[in-house]
Design a protein around this nucleic acid. Sequence first.
DNA 1: ACACTAATGAACACAAATGAACAATTCTTT
DNA 2: AAAGAATTGTTCATTTGTGTTCATTAGTGT
Lengths: 243, 243
Amino acid sequence: MFPIERYNLIINLLEEKSSMTVKELSLATNATTATIRRDLEKLDREKAIKRTHGGAVRLNNDIDPPFNLRDSEKEAEKIKIARVAIKFINDGDTLFFDSSTTVMRLIPFLSSKNGITVITNGIKTAFELGKIGVNTICTGGELTNCNTLIGLEAINAIEKYHVDKFFFSCRAVNELGAYESSTQLVEIKQAMNKNAKESYLLADSGKLNKTAFIRLNLNKIDTLITDSQVDYDWGLNVIWDKK
Amino acid sequence: MFPIERYNLIINLLEEKSSMTVKELSLATNATTATIRRDLEKLDREKAIKRTHGGAVRLNNDIDPPFNLRDSEKEAEKIKIARVAIKFINDGDTLFFDSSTTVMRLIPFLSSKNGITVITNGIKTAFELGKIGVNTICTGGELTNCNTLIGLEAINAIEKYHVDKFFFSCRAVNELGAYESSTQLVEIKQAMNKNAKESYLLADSGKLNKTAFIRLNLNKIDTLITDSQVDYDWGLNVIWDKK
DNA sequence: ACACTAATGAACACAAATGAACAATTCTTT
DNA sequence: AAAGAATTGTTCATTTGTGTTCATTAGTGT
């Protein structure tokens, strides 16, 4: 086995198991513990894994928990957007929410509304909605990123409901449409879009005029809400924070 | 368990429970109290938690009081039970978990297993499973208590899967069966019980010989796991924490 | 063919992590 | 306030993992 193969194997094993000892890795790769230690040192330097006394753990793992503090990125913009978006929600509305952090910023403003029902594929979104007593329905599905439910189960759940409004975000937007990073996310959003009377795309200005991996058609999107003035005419209703 | 994993576990537990004693943490992590004290000292220095006499509390005390309150009781018992229960889970098992906090105490011990898949109707349960990289499927449904998914949607999801083992808790147990506080919870648990080869009921000793609103038949329950010796013969396999 | 380099394993002194024991400290109860 | 209980910090021993050095092997370039 070549070194590179071993590195990949180690990374894959760690992705599956979240932590492994040097001994386990040595057994799995047919290399001595000395070699594994050298590998781990290198992979740690390259930030591919996290070295620990006795073995290594996956990195990706602990980025998530401090959710409240974590996504300080574009926080102000997201709140601005939420303050605009909340004006489109009326008492008694039924809503689809995607699992994005931008849409989550709407939740605090929802407590002033009455009789709202939200269907979402975001676990944290559901949790936060539940906390403030909003009538919440969660789609089923497989969990990714500790947060988002995807797959057939999720799509089926979404297709059962027909709602008034769909609020969602994306990775990038341009005149051709909105972009996402995986087909599975696109499927979810298209299913929600299809079964909503109106759709609202929430995207901070940093996402405008960019692309990402896969496109989501904008056909039925009524309104793009963003945080600063835009001049493009993309054939849809564009609203931004005026102040 | 590596030190880093233990640190994360401590922080996660505190995030959920707002305060834990050194003893409880020692049970939960399989480390002696001396080690926990050293950990807490370190985590306090790093401002990740707040050390107190007898244990530790979390720093940002602003999140989800309702869920925490109910759950602060019987912590040590729940962890004891989890330590017994984990022995029944093997690599590659497929599992149903209910949304109880008792079953959640199993999660930290799951990271040492390989190829586990869990289907749950608990949002927090799903979230915690996702964090440690366990393959997780969430049922859909209506959200209650910020945590539990119920209703037809949840039942339908459960009925699609046939698993090896079902782990659950309840409000009370006696010789006639297990009791729950609502019919909807009973429906969920019966659906899971039906589609699992083996079922394990986790109940602290305070729940034994009590009743609650509605009964769940014990027919297919193989094993009751509890935290102290019991003398009753209820015609099922009863296991308790020996030490 | 030759010198050179990368990769690996083996050996070993050193360091980290932990548990156990116990005196000192802090909390609780009366 | 004093006695008793619980928790803590400290020290010590043990286990386990680590980094380093050295020798060997196999591949690379001239």
